[in-house]
């Protein structure tokens, strides 16, 4: 029995993360290189009002939670220092919980809209339901963990961050994590599953946030050739690749 548990722990906490990350990296490159399918596939054009109450709470909430997890992963000492004062700890936990609830509300609204609106049903793929289902389970388990196993921001920084770093350092050590309650492990497995499915779903749009828009000049003119160079006899145009190809 213990062997079985060990095997399961090893599979879900060590093998699965590597499979997920490998599939995510290779899959994302493959998907990006076949650029036409790289889109957020917005359905606002077919239905805009209901969407507002789904997409806005969902996106704002998930952005905050993603950044929260990322910071705890990158600078755990900072998070622990912040949490050193109980009031600050409570503020952080409550805010995170509220954003989690926002995600839950948003995703329920989005699911409801997908199911009930006949136009939206036309542009809904099976993968959309898989992703919505996974996200729903994930946010629910996250809220469950946050409520039942208090002060997650602290024990994430001290237990999960070393585990995640060990995975990235190619010296996986899941002993501490294996001792955590099964809901927490469930949440970890869900996270890696979602990461694995990013390249095969509409979640790819999260990989291409249009940040460079901020420093790009508004107008864009593209010359297929550098015209001045092209017309110089000593620079044959075949040497100058088109800029957008």
């Amino acid at each position: 029995m213990e062997n079985l548990f060990n095997a399961l722990n090893n599979f879900f906490l060590i093998a699965l993360p590597y499979i997920a990350l490998f599939v995510f990296v290779i899959g994302s490159i493959w998907r990006y290189r076949n650029g036409f399918k790289f889109s957020s596939l917005s359905s606002q054009f077919l239905e805009g009002r209901q969407l507002f109450w789904g997409t806005v709470p969902f996106h704002i909430g998930i952005l905050f939670l993603f950044l929260g997890h990322l910071i705890a992963f990158l600078i755990p000492s900072g998070v622990l220092a912040w949490n050193a004062h109980p009031l600050r700890l409570i503020i952080l936990e409550v805010t995170a919980f509220i954003f989690g609830v926002a995600v839950l509300i948003g995703i329920v609204n989005l699911l409801y809209r997908r199911i009930t609106n006949s136009r939206i049903a036309v542009v809904t793929s099976k993968m959309d339901y898989v992703i919505i289902g996974l996200l729903l389970i994930q946010v629910f388990s996250g809220l469950w963990v946050a409520y039942n196993f208090r002060w997650g921001s602290s024990w994430f920084a001290s237990v999960l961050t070393p585990y995640l770093w060990s995975v990235f350092a190619l010296q996986p050590d899941a002993t501490a994590v294996a001792a955590l309650p099964w809901v927490v492990k469930f949440h970890i497995v869900g996270a890696f599953l979602i990461i694995m499915l990013i390249p095969f779903s509409r979640l790819v749009h999260f990989l291409v946030p249009p940040i460079d828009y901020l420093w790009r000049p508004y107008q864009q003119v593209i010359w297929y050739w550098n015209n001045r160079e092209v017309r110089k006899p000593h620079t044959p145009w075949s040497l100058k690749r088109p800029k957008n190809n």
Partner: peptide
């Protein structure tokens, strides 16, 4: 936002690069 739309320098035709468009609409 994704810089998919551009004006062709040679003749000024405005085009959307279908590979770069991300439906930010």
């Amino acid at each position: 936002p994704s810089g998919a739309i551009y004006k062709r320098g040679e003749d000024g035709v405005v085009l959307i690069n279908q590979q770069v468009c991300r439906a930010w609409r």
